[in-house]
Write a protein that binds this DNA or RNA. Sequence first.
DNA 1: CGCTCAAAACTACCATGTTACATGGTGGTG
DNA 2: CACCACCATGTAACATGGTAGTTTTGAGCG
Lengths: 234, 234
Amino acid sequence: MTLGHKVSDLYLKCRHMDPIPLQTSVTEQTAQRLREAIILGEFPLGTKLSEQKLADQLQVSRSPVREALVLLQTEGLVRVFPKRGTFVFSPDDNLTRDLCEHRTLLETACVALAIERNHARLLKDLKASFTHMQNAVSAENTINYSRGDLAFHRAIIKHSGNSSMIKVYETTIGPIMALRTHLFTITGIQLDRSMEQHQQIIEACAARDVGRAQALCTSHIRHLSDHVFEAQLG
Amino acid sequence: MTLGHKVSDLYLKCRHMDPIPLQTSVTEQTAQRLREAIILGEFPLGTKLSEQKLADQLQVSRSPVREALVLLQTEGLVRVFPKRGTFVFSPDDNLTRDLCEHRTLLETACVALAIERNHARLLKDLKASFTHMQNAVSAENTINYSRGDLAFHRAIIKHSGNSSMIKVYETTIGPIMALRTHLFTITGIQLDRSMEQHQQIIEACAARDVGRAQALCTSHIRHLSDHVFEAQLG
DNA sequence: CGCTCAAAACTACCATGTTACATGGTGGTG
DNA sequence: CACCACCATGTAACATGGTAGTTTTGAGCG
């Protein structure tokens, strides 16, 4: 279990929306480290998380851990049962369906807004993420590929300009990313097909073809959920 | 047997706290009380919340208060500035716009899903809420009117059947409701017009007219946001 | 009279201690 | 042998105390 990230690295990674994060509390650092750990699959889904163990590993007291777990619960990554313990979320069919349905709603709405409001910046970030993913594919680095993929979709949300949706997207995509990580470790993923889909989304955005971009996002997410269900992950 | 009661009896009573833990922690109780207080306008928007004061008022220690504030922060009701304090959220133009845009997205999506998936139950709850609001209007009880209004829109979300959207809706509508409460205290609201809008939404849902229901929800929310902007609340 | 700086008061933040609850095991009893 | 009450242990929930940082205010100085 490798929780030993550098705080500064994590801080840079989670800087998508913080308006004024001049000072970052231990609680937030702890939350970020745990978030990463769950998303990257270092804790198997459904396992119990001991506050004391986490506190020992992260070299902090239990208070920040507790508050971080409260945060992660609102993001759907863990489930807290009073007096019994905290567990990493474990998906069921319904939850996966709901999450993907919700993500589709958000991304289709945001891609329309982003094309309308921030066309240039959207394209810039999409292309940058795409290049990042290409490099990851060449290097066969699945972790970096995931990061690029995440950045790609975050760009769509971010450039919608809607702070509320940006915030919610993070809490929606967390469990999905954790699921996908699990998927990676079990079945792998069809990288070239995924790359093609992203490429098409970029083209549709470049052409300001909102309808096509939305359709592509929808099918892109559907591919993922189908994949999850095939693997019977939930 | 020397003792009066058998342990097994107690076990039966609290056997399995299945879907929702019936044991509610002090933290959640605290969060609920603070949530209500903010939404009902007991704390003016933007005011500073002292952990110690709140702990004294609520007769608990500071730990539950802290964790409750973390919760409320994720719901957008308060804003925590490390080492500086916790403040009730104060809206600006952009936030209000974003929240209403987001709420519109959720409600239009959910009303379509609800009509498709839970038509009967949707209508039942909508009508019940409507009756509740009518009674509140007769009694000139604005608090009850707010509750009914909230229940009305929650019904739409709930019967979409999407757990992820249900969860997010709460965190989206919290600040909006707080804003509306503020609006009430300042300018009042056109109750009859609002009632008419709700009535029309019910009719559209009854007729399974998805497009019309969505359009009505959109304009309903737009009325609210216009009202907020007119009052220059944010 | 206004400005600067420093000290004090306040506050959040984190650590530690205490209590209460849940769980697994064991011995006793029908 | 089976079942159930009791007990021990581990863990979470809550309380409290100490520390570091921020804001404020007031006194001294320009």
